[in-house]
Simulated scan of single mutants.
Amino acid sequence: MRDDVLTALLRPLWLIDIFHSMWEAGGTWGVRGHEDSCAIVHHMVQGACVITFEDDSEPVELREGDLAIFPHGTAHSFSAAPGVGTTPLSTLVPSVSPGASGLVRVGTPPYGTRMLCASLYYSPVTDPGLYGELPRVIVLRRPMLEGEPLLLSTLASLPSEIARTAPGSRMVALRAFETIFVLSLRVALERQLMEEAPALRALRHQGISKALMAIHGSYAEPWTVETLARRADMSRSAFSQQFKELVGETPMRHLTARRLQEARRLLSDTTVAQQDIAQRVGYRSQVGFHLAFRKEFDMTPGAFRSQCAPAS
């Protein structure tokens, strides 16, 4: 699996902050989480636990050294064993503010289970695109990590690093967990651990993947269905049909969504001149950009910019 496939998945994301904690558990214990708009990382430092979901699907056991990634912050519980009573997460951690960290103890001593957890928060203007097709949980077993020296060494250094209060600690923690997140997804793609969602099949399609890389990496170019089909080395009709089947929308609709998502990100950065944004995302006229943005988000670019402006 090529790295550019992973780039296409992650390019629209904008991770901006983190909450991380070390969990220590003992006895019979259970914690019930909630849905959250972030990516979640669980690393079993010591001991084991069981992950369950609200739909009563098969439990997932995490053993010492395993790593679990929840790309969408899907609600789940983790406990000493299946079927035990659970305490709401909000009771144990009443305040989960980005940038904070903490030590959480649950159950009764001795605390033989230790788990490092992090919530990676997206920018509120993020539209995940193809990333939204990732499964709700991806589990990397310890033997897989042992073949990934950078991932393994980053995980090993985190407990001591996040305990520091040195300058830049918050940024270091975010980037370290972001590295773990990206490396984990790379391993999952290489080992084909993810469910075969249509969009992931699109990224593995020799022709459609080329068009997706063009759309996501060079969205400002004046693409047409014909030029994208040539990039994919396919006929126009075959390309259009295959693209819609795998991606779920037409090539030009996907391109428009990518351009407007980037426009929204640029508008949220008030240091970027608003009059420059249309051209930067591929529109040749301000009027065309204005109409497309309003149709997509039910507000004008100016109104969105006003929402993002810092209070005076």
Rank of each mutant, 00 (worst) to 15 (best):
residue 86 T to G: 04
residue 58 E to M: 12
residue 259 R to A: 08
residue 2 R to A: 08
residue 289 F to M: 06
residue 59 P to I: 08
residue 30 G to C: 10
residue 210 K to Y: 11
residue 264 R to L: 10
residue 286 Q to Y: 03
residue 292 A to I: 07
residue 73 G to M: 12
residue 210 K to R: 15
residue 242 Q to E: 15
residue 78 F to H: 15
residue 268 S to T: 11
residue 168 G to V: 03
residue 29 W to P: 13
residue 246 L to P: 05
residue 72 H to P: 01
residue 209 S to K: 11
residue 84 V to E: 13
residue 302 G to Q: 13
residue 95 S to W: 04
residue 223 W to M: 08
residue 40 I to M: 04
residue 111 Y to K: 14
residue 31 V to N: 01
residue 156 A to E: 12
residue 300 T to A: 12
residue 92 L to F: 12
residue 286 Q to A: 10
residue 265 R to V: 00
residue 270 T to A: 06
residue 144 M to V: 10
residue 143 P to L: 04
residue 276 D to W: 00
residue 181 F to A: 02
residue 78 F to G: 05
residue 83 G to E: 00
residue 158 L to M: 14
residue 114 R to H: 11
residue 275 Q to I: 01
residue 76 H to S: 05
residue 19 F to L: 09
residue 290 H to E: 12
residue 65 G to T: 04
residue 267 L to K: 02
residue 39 A to S: 14
residue 187 V to N: 06
residue 189 L to P: 01
residue 16 I to P: 00
residue 91 T to G: 00
residue 265 R to K: 15
residue 32 R to G: 10
residue 120 L to T: 00
residue 239 F to D: 14
residue 164 R to H: 11
residue 242 Q to W: 05
residue 213 M to D: 06
residue 112 G to W: 00
residue 90 S to T: 09
residue 71 P to R: 03
residue 5 V to G: 01
residue 290 H to C: 04
residue 166 A to Q: 10
residue 293 F to P: 07
residue 39 A to F: 02
residue 46 Q to K: 14
residue 238 A to I: 01
residue 163 A to C: 09
residue 110 P to W: 10
residue 144 M to L: 13
residue 184 S to I: 00
residue 291 L to P: 01
residue 203 L to I: 06
residue 232 A to H: 03
residue 47 G to H: 06
residue 268 S to F: 10
residue 240 S to W: 06
residue 305 R to N: 03
residue 126 T to Q: 06
residue 242 Q to G: 08
residue 41 V to I: 13
residue 116 L to E: 06
residue 263 A to C: 04
residue 3 D to L: 09
residue 257 A to F: 14
residue 259 R to C: 13
residue 228 L to P: 02
residue 167 P to C: 06
residue 123 S to Y: 05
residue 176 A to C: 10
residue 5 V to I: 12
residue 65 G to H: 11
residue 307 Q to L: 15
residue 285 S to Q: 07
residue 152 L to R: 15
residue 4 D to P: 00
residue 19 F to C: 01
residue 173 A to Y: 10
residue 118 A to F: 01
residue 164 R to C: 04
residue 206 Q to V: 15
residue 241 Q to M: 09
residue 311 A to I: 15
residue 187 V to W: 04
residue 240 S to R: 07
residue 208 I to M: 03
residue 177 F to I: 06
residue 307 Q to T: 10
residue 65 G to A: 11
residue 210 K to S: 08
residue 277 I to S: 13
residue 234 M to C: 08
residue 11 R to Y: 09
residue 51 I to T: 09
